[in-house]
Nucleic acid binder design. Structure first.
Length: 471
RNA sequence: GGUCCCAUCGUCUAGAGGCCUAGGACAUAGCCCUCUCAAGGCUAAGACACGGGUUCGAUUCCCGUUGGGACCGCCA
């Protein structure tokens, strides 16, 4: 493959908010397509709307992409740095008579739009300035693109096939505002040309813009790239995913304790599939990804399935790594101090017992609390049910037995428990549950021998004594 | 309103005319395992929107209906 037909794709978010789920999936599909084809992934910030774009959002979007592991090869380019380029293209179109000045004010336009809509007519621009010979004094014009009025435009979409649009339906869109700044539909074309983009992979909310953009490519004398329009991601009510549906920013999922690989895996399966496979490594994703396997219909975002996938990834992440990942959560909850170091081997052991019952890092950090803290708070209900006169003698006997042993391993502890329950002919639960409440404050935890081993002799005895005092 | 897109279990999807008694996954229910809770194993329930064609044969192809979505900005 020569450099000329090397795949070049881009992700072009506008910094008017955090990186959201939909944008992240678009970025992911572009990234995957680039990596699969040994191509180039370009990052471009679409910030021509200066009033709505902010630096903080740019940084947040980059942070989101980095967290997801979607590294870019070029950029981030910013459109605000490229205004002179756009200006030269606009002058060229103007000079060639392919664009014209429009002196209508936004207010007039708005009024006419309302009127048209009230009459049930399409709210399109009436092209009145198109035939103007002289400028209208006292007004600063915008620039409109001359759209062909007849014929058809065919968008040959890589996902949807050929789509035909009637040119008569297309509007003479504004390509430069009266303040001299260019608009989206124009800059997107200029940039994609300028950056040699070969494939435009984006949400299908852009499908209706595509024929207009194709005409701009043509007017500029360039061949349009290939297009691939991705189906939308919907909320549970089947409308476009938005803030109303809860957490939609990628960063919010990170902060809620999701693993980036899990989110990526979930997102890729929203619209893309590979037979019956559900869980993919990054390498597999890059290897198997193709536009052909992307579906056409919109997908509903399902938090339950994300949670399941996250738990799968929790289980397959090495405990070593989980130690580092959970640390910020422990600090944030005040379970450990900012500079506090935990014994790594001990923490790994603790995490191993918890990981299969925690679906997120957040849950894991919560569960870790009773291993780390000095004392536990005992739930009243649990105390009532298990810390009572009935269990007291067994707890005393256990405490006395535990005081005498040096080997506090799960195996050794099990022997101690067994000898007590056999002696009194009781079930293991009759002893294990009260001990569990004493150790963790709740009736739910990993296996009691593991819990005791990890809590350790000293703390375990303290907690047992404290529990006995409550009876 | 106009234009465009879409349509398989509640949800994500497999399915490229006979392999379909429509497969998998999440969620749900039951059972097993069991010191609790998970995890795991097994089982159950659950879908081709509807109507016409085309064909020996349609989930699969075509048309229409219905339903849903997107876009129609001096937003991107």
């Amino acid at each position: 493959m020569s450099d000329k037909d090397k795949v070049r794709v881009r992700f072009a978010p506008s910094p008017t908010g955090h990186l959201h789920i939909g944008g992240a999936r678009t970025a992911l599909f572009n990234w995957l397509f680039a990596r699969h084809n040994n191509g180039t992934f370009v990052l471009r910030i679409e910030d021509t709307d200066r009033s709505r774009s902010t630096e903080d959002y740019i940084e947040s979007i980059l942070e989101g992409l980095r967290w997801l592991g979607l590294d870019w090869d070029e950029g981030p380019f910013r459109q605000t740095d490229r205004f002179d380029i756009y200006r030269s293209y606009i002058d060229k179109l103007l000079a060639e008579g392919k664009a014209y000045y429009c002196y209508c004010s936004p207010e007039e336009l708005e009024e006419r739009r309302k009127e048209a809509q009230a009459k049930g007519l399409p709210p399109r621009y009436d092209r009145r300035c198109r035939k103007l010979k002289e400028p209208i004094p006292g007004r600063t014009p915008s620039v409109r693109f001359k759209m062909p009025e007849t014929g058809q435009t065919i968008v040959d979409d890589l996902i949807r096939g050929k789509i035909t649009f009637e040119n008569s339906q297309l509007d003479d869109l504004i390509i430069m505002r009266s303040d001299g700044t260019p608009t989206y539909n124009f800059v997107v074309v200029v940039d994609d040309v300028d950056m040699n983009i070969t494939h435009v992979i984006r949400g299908d909310d852009h499908l209706n813009n595509t024929p207009k953009q194709i005409h701009i490519y043509n007017a500029l004398g360039y061949t349009p790239p290939r297009f691939a329009h991705l189906p939308m991601i919907l909320g549970s009510d089947k409308t476009r995913l938005s803030k109303r549906h809860g957490a939609t920013s990628v960063i919010a999922y990170r902060d809620a304790g999701y693993l980036s690989d899990a989110l990526v895996n979930y997102l890729v399966r929203l619209g893309w599939s590979y037979g019956d496979q559900e869980v993919f490594s990054r390498e597999e994703l890059i290897k198997y990804f193709s536009l052909e396997n992307i579906g056409k219909s919109a997908a509903v975002f399902n938090p339950e399935k994300l949670l399941w996938l996250n738990s799968e990834y929790m289980k397959s992440t090495p405990p070593e790594k989980l130690c580092d990942l959970v640390r910020p959560f422990l600090i944030q909850k005040g379970i450990i101090k900012e500079d506090e170091e935990l014994d790594k081997e001990w923490l790994k052991k603790a995490i191993k017992t918890l990981v299969e019952r925690c679906r997120t890092l957040e849950e894991l950090s919560n569960a870790l609390r009773y291993y780390i803290s000095e004392y536990v708070e005992i739930e009243p209900k649990a105390k009532e049910k298990f810390l009572n006169e009935k269990s007291k003698p067994y707890l005393i006997e256990l405490r006395d037995a535990l005081m005498t042993i040096d080997d506090f391993s799960a195996g050794a502890l099990e022997k101690v428990f067994m000898s007590i329950i056999e002696k009194h002919n009781i079930k293991l639960g009759a002893l294990a549950q009260p001990v569990r409440v004493a150790m963790t404050g709740t009736t739910v935890s990993p296996g009691i021998f593991d819990v005791l081993e990890i809590v350790g002799k000293e703390k375990a005895l303290k907690r047992l004594n404290r529990a006995l005092e409550l009876i």
